[in-house]
């Protein structure tokens, strides 16, 4: 298991809201065990719904899953989950930071906040993914990743349980690729596999 924070080439940030649990679980289930990326997942959920999501994710992967605490190190080969009721940011390439300030797009955590922060800290090495959801959170953040030279994938709205969120990203021109739900896990796995 890679424990080093040195030489991270890729951060995968995944955002979703209503209807995103299923694709999130599929993506996590397909992640390669030998990845050099740190994986960060931001989904809208109710405050106090602790550990249930962590446990669901952990059951799908051999990679360690952790709900982020303040100043936790960004580690490769780990899956990090934004805690309910906090915005999750990258303080820099090495550490996370949390922020309990007002909701953005009616959401805390807000996907935009994490995506924009990822773009600022990691630039073109970010892979951003936006999934099913019923509000516009994430679209602007995905655009920030794309503007910073990162790779952006959006779940094809036609294959999303709730089309609105991925649709907003596409309308904003933030989608580098629009991908069928069933093809997302394999596509991401290929991107994240350690390069020889």
């Amino acid at each position: 298991m890679a424990q080093t924070t040195v030489g991270i080439r890729t951060v995968l940030v995944v955002g979703g809201s209503a209807g995103s649990l299923d694709p999130v679980l599929q993506i996590v289930g397909a992640l390669p065990a030998d990845t050099d990326a740190a994986i960060v997942i931001v989904v809208h959920r109710k405050a106090g719904s602790d550990s249930i999501l962590s446990n669901l994710l952990a059951a799908k992967t051999s990679l360690p899953v952790k709900e982020v605490e303040d100043k936790d190190p960004v580690l490769t080969g780990h899956i990090f989950l934004a805690p309910p009721d906090y915005h999750l940011l990258f303080e820099n390439r090495n550490y996370f930071a949390l922020d309990a300030s007002e909701k953005i797009n009616y959401s805390r955590p807000s996907i935009d906040v994490t995506f924009e922060s990822a773009a600022a800290a990691f630039g073109s090495t970010v892979v951003g993914v936006l999934l099913s959801g019923a509000n516009a959170d994430g679209a602007e953040g995905l655009a920030a990743i794309r503007n910073a030279g990162g790779l952006t994938l959006v779940q094809d709205p036609a294959t999303a349980e709730v089309y609105y969120m991925p649709q907003q990203a596409i309308l904003l021109g933030a989608a580098g690729q629009v991908v069928h739900k069933d093809q997302l896990p394999a596509r991401l796995a290929a991107l994240l596999r350690r390069q020889p």
């Binding site: 940011l89 303080e91 922020d99 906040v113 922060s117 800290a121």
Partner: peptide, 9 residues
């Protein structure tokens, strides 16, 4: 102050 959050604010 933690810079990422401060910059955002």
């Amino acid at each position: 102050y933690a810079r990422a959050s401060l910059r955002r604010r």
